[in-house]
Amino acid sequence: MLELRSITAGYARNAPVVRDVSLTVASGESVGLLGPSGCGKSTLARVAALLHRPDSGTLLLDGEPVRRWRHRAPREKRTAFGVVFQQARLSADPRLALTDLIAEPLRATGRGAEVPGRIAELAPTVGLTPDLLTRRPHEVSDGQLQRACLARALALRPRLLVCDEMTAMLDASTAAALVAAVEDYRAATGAALLAVGHDRALLGRWCDRTVQWDSLA
């Protein structure tokens, strides 16, 4: 369903951090992308989730080339993706209570009416208790915040989840619980997964197949 062809991307024109990388995720498939610190795998994950425009290369979603990135991407393409990053704190608006954080994508797409029902479904899925839902990010731990970020990524029922080091800040049990939550969601919906990280044991156990960063270029 997602095909990255010869992607080159970076933050300065003359110094790409991703060079000529190709990767395919079939529908319903889970792919683990393994690479060392600083290799550029997070940048590729952002390109794959339409959050970062590549300098060159092609991205096909369901066989159709994507031409616009970020907020310019058409809504039905953007909402096909759910993204969870390593640093929950950098990706969460500090002013929002966790409920509102989770509801953000619903409200942004004019589906505010679904919020109460969806929160009631999502909170137990990711292991958030009611008292936590009313707190703001600085009043919860990293793990509690990451649970909310996963719930936010699932809010619009994405067809592809991109998890960039989702569990790097978490203890072993919380990590296993969040992986189980992702897998329950995938089992129920058939969604595909691109999980990025450097923990071979984790990605090997989690994903259908793992690919090594070095083998992609």
Partner: peptide
């Protein structure tokens, strides 16, 4: 339970949710 949750051990989370520290 914590050790058993490791991906190179059982990879099973501890069942249930962490308790509310306010209660």
């Amino acid at each position: 339970g914590l050790l058993q949750a490791l991906p190179d051990r059982a990879f099973t989370p501890i069942p249930g949710m962490p308790p509310e520290l306010g209660d």
